[in-house]
Amino acid sequence: MLEIHDLSVAFSMYGNGREKKWAEVISAMDITVCRGEVVAIIGSSGAGKSLLAHAVLGILPPNARMGGTITIDGEVLTEARKRALRGNTIALVPQSVGYLDPLVRVKGQVVQAARLSGMTRPASHGRQAEVFARYGLDAGVGGRYPHQISGGMAKRVLTATATAGEASLLIADEPTSGLDPEALSHALGHLRELADSGKGVLLITHDITAALSISDRVSICYAGVTLETVSAHAFGRPGALLHPYTRGLWHALPQNGFHPFRGLHLPSRRGAGCPFVRECPQATDPCVTTLPPLTKSGNGDVRCHHA
């Protein structure tokens, strides 16, 4: 239902004096999410994961410039269309409590989310009670303000707010960070249930283990570029992974040997080539000069000259 093709996002900045520059943060991201499916986007911090979510919702800051196409159910998303769809067809589970209104009781915010998606007032109150019950929030929690609830509760309130409407696409931005294992498995279970009920779920996270436990497909990003998209069970063995970065990621997991990378450079893209070229053990001349296209492979798509 959601198709993102060749997305790029750049920010305008002022260098020396009045010289205007564009800093490209996302260069080439491609993601598809179907109904009934959980797709995880994995990447280190600064890979552009959250910006991708903001680009889909049309909430990028004013100095941002976007390229590429985003379609939903075959229809191209323009900025006007995004404004019309966000909140009712597309919902975001934001990263932190900071996204809740500090001056409104939690219950009111959930009711308002349901109202904005087109429900009547009595129906939205009913829905609020329903989602609170689903996420294990006591009725008493509804009367509290955001600063009076714990971090784990706030995560559940944010999910409740996003699912109060009838959204068919849910984008969850780091819904699991800061949760203990029990709360974590609950939160992930809820996302899986939402997908099983026919919604599309885009899960943005840096926690590979959490992502693999519920996802159908996993998309690996590095410095604003989608390097590989594979089915989640391909992550069970390194042989099924085609990109050197993805294989390195697999080997770096504590349960798979805990091997560090040779370089410790931070992801940033310079020049026109592959963003991973400075760390890559297989890098050759074409990798420095041209960004490889995303090509079909056995399990999914990969962007590498050597795959």
């Binding site: 280190s44 911090s45 840096h206 590979i208 390195g248 990621l249 770096a252 997991l253």
Partner: peptide, 9 residues
């Protein structure tokens, strides 16, 4: 709060 590769390094 770190990704797998930074964590391993």
């Amino acid at each position: 709060m770190l990704d797998a590769i930074t964590q391993a390094s």
